[in-house]
Design a protein around this nucleic acid. Structure first.
Lengths: 255, 255
DNA sequence: CAGTGGTCTAGACCACTGG
DNA sequence: CAGTGGTCTAGACCACTGC
């Protein structure tokens, strides 16, 4: 990497030109992905990184700015720049948009009570395999749980994880852990969820689902299908949730 | 405004210190809000603005960067910086997250067919008034429409607008306009919607709603309540939508 | 070719944190 | 008080647009 020589690749498909700070960003991403710095840890100071990449501090700064905007890094003035993590109280339910209809925050209701109904190995069907980027028949872990708030069952979730990265995950491990599930994935399996896509629908529960949520089978429920991704847009989790929306709602901000 | 003299206000409530570029940002926002530059128009170049505010180009740049991140401005290299608008083909359905289950984009289905069922003046009830920041009994406009895609009724929307800013809006005006409704609001009433909050629920339609959407009354539908805001976090529209999710889904990206 | 935004640098100084 | 990120400046040069 040389300041006066950004590596241009003319004739490329899409980006005929990549500015230096994006190349630095890519290198930082690579370090994150390879675990050089773990979630929650500090990364080297801007000055150190500038020296390492033989680039000005301003260029490193711009690369870090983008990674911070992507929620991969967190800047803290006077302290340093940290690798983002799901294991912090402040951002407990980072990917959960369900809120009680009363103004109260989700955390305000106290931590959810979690009951894991199952956790078992399976061979991936075509649909699951496609969502997780696996081949049909590869091993996946499947788990089901119910979340209760103030004693009321509110969310029923099924989730599928690729068997390889999550080898050794058991229902005991899941049940015994208190804190965000994605924090467990980080610390125990080195898998950090970076972003997710959700598809929402209104549906009616089947009898078993209705029973688990303690609602009448005619109650409309919000179906939330989520695919969560690690670095590099690699899908690492498929989750299908059923949310009760009689006392809660799904909140979304459009900018 | 002076480069060497950022106006610090010690003893303030929250921000004991406001950097220069944020003060510039506030001034630019004020100009946008007062209509000095209208949606779709170019704003002065960075160099001009730097001279006007007696600040370096870099400082103006950072202010504009934030406004662009907020989708209030759009930068176009080689051309200039423009005031964002809803009247552009590229971002036709900026606030509509419903997509057909097939990979196709919404626009790919061709423009929606719109039928306005009603548009009338009302006195705001307590709920509507609160959502729009009005007093109970103030005049509001209420409209209802059905959106069809490929002939299939898919969305039923009720919307409420404050009577003051939207004086003169009629069902003819709405029906005769082709293009995003928010673009009409910009050009005809000088109201630019900047952001919106949505609350989603799964519900069952009442008989009238079911009839308008041509579905069985037992069909679960996605209820989307939206409050849209102009500059300054002023609410300017309440919208209640019912979406069919048998052929479409609501897509959300979590970062 | 002039004008615009985009990148990169170097250096000075400020605000915040922790020992 | 040393070290970190945050702000601001000034100047050089690059990439893109339109005339």
């Amino acid at each position: 990497m040389n300041a006066s020589q950004p590596s241009i690749s003319p004739g490329d498909g899409a980006p005929a030109f990549s500015p230096l700070y994006r190349q630095i960003k890519a290198l930082l991403l690579q370090s994150l992905q390879q675990g050089e710095w773990k979630p929650g840890e500090v990364i080297p100071s801007e000055i150190e990184l500038a020296a390492r990449f033989r680039v000005s501090q301003g260029t490193v700064r711009k690369a870090i700015d983008e990674l911070a905007a992507d929620n991969l890094l967190v800047r803290r003035q006077g302290r340093g720049t940290f690798v983002a993590t799901h294991a912090e109280q402040q951002v407990q339910y980072r990917f959960l948009r369900l809120q009680p209809d009363s103004g109260a925050t989700m955390a305000g209701e106290g931590p959810a009570e979690r009951d894991f109904v199952a956790c078992k190995r399976q061979r991936a069907g075509a649909q699951i395999a496609r969502a997780l980027g696996l081949r049909t028949g590869e091993q996946v872990l499947q788990a089901r749980r119910v979340l209760r708030f103030a004693g009321v069952p509110t969310i029923l979730e099924d989730l599928w994880l690729p068997g390889g990265p999550f080898k050794g995950l058991t229902v005991e491990r899941l049940s015994g852990y208190h804190g965000p599930m994605y924090a467990l994935f980080e610390s125990e399996f080195g898998v950090r969820m970076v972003r997710a896509d959700e598809k929402l629908r209104a549906v009616l529960p089947d009898p078993q689902q209705a029973k688990l949520l303690a609602v009448d089978p005619g109650t409309p429920l919000l179906s939330v299908e989520r695919i969560a991704y690690t670095y590099n847009d690699t899908p690492m989790e498929l989750r299908r949730g059923l949310y009760r929306t009689d006392t809660h709602h799904y909140r979304n901000q459009l900018g």
